[in-house]
């Protein structure tokens, strides 16, 4: 942990603070939510790394998608993700968000979450234990360090593609496009 290295702080305050002040928004998207309470309470105490659950996406910069994503939950997930202020990171739990997992041929569960919102990191497993969560977070740190955790930039860059994917699923989404969507109709 380089939290105490003053030089690094002075050089890259943005990266450093983003790393060590991860405010988490999580809501019960899937079964992985069961792993969150242990990781933030006394046993594992995520707060010592500055990871702290907050109440609204406005205050958060890390989005934990805990488990499989049904069609019904995806819409709030997209909206919540869009409401978080940039820079923001997303970490998906378990195998379901990666490729559908055991729900891959379900009629109301999506298979690839990263078609709809950008995912900065996956924690594989069904389901991952708190240790894995911490592993995921430390991995996220390295990604932030290396500048690879740029999902929010990707989302903005390729917004028309994401939006068209979302709209293919739902038809009308119920809120206007977040960014410019040129070429959306052409696809």
């Amino acid at each position: 942990m380089d939290r105490r290295q003053l030089i690094k702080w002075l050089k890259e305050p943005l990266k450093m603070s983003n790393k060590y002040s991860l405010h988490v928004v999580y809501f019960c998207t899937g079964c992985g939510i069961i792993e969150i309470p242990p990781s933030i309470t006394a046993r594992w105490d995520a707060e010592r790394f500055g990871v702290k659950p907050v109440a609204t996406p406005r205050q958060a910069n890390l989005f934990l998608i805990t488990g499989y994503v049904s069609l019904k939950t995806l819409k709030p997930i997209i909206r919540t993700y869009e409401q978080m202020p940039a820079p923001k990171y997303t970490v998906a739990f378990g195998s379901c968000p990666i490729d559908g997992g055991m729900y891959w041929d379900s009629y109301n569960t999506i298979n690839h979450l990263d078609k709809y919102i950008p995912i900065d990191g996956y924690i594989a497993g069904c389901m991952p234990r708190p240790e894995a969560v911490f592993a995921g977070i430390t991995h996220l740190w390295t990604l932030i360090d290396e500048g690879k955790a740029d999902g929010y930039k990707k989302y903005r860059r390729n917004y028309s593609q994401y939006r068209s994917n979302q709209e293919r699923l739902y038809g009308e989404l119920g809120w206007p496009p977040r960014f410019e969507t040129e070429g959306l109709e052409n696809e």
């Binding site: 603070s17 309470t41 105490d45 790394f49 500055g50 910069n61």
Partner: peptide, 17 residues
């Protein structure tokens, strides 16, 4: 609560972010 807890300067880190 028998946790280790964040560093005392954690609010400063939060602020910078």
């Amino acid at each position: 609560e028998w946790r280790y807890g964040p560093p005392i300067l954690q609010p400063v880190i939060d602020l910078i972010k």
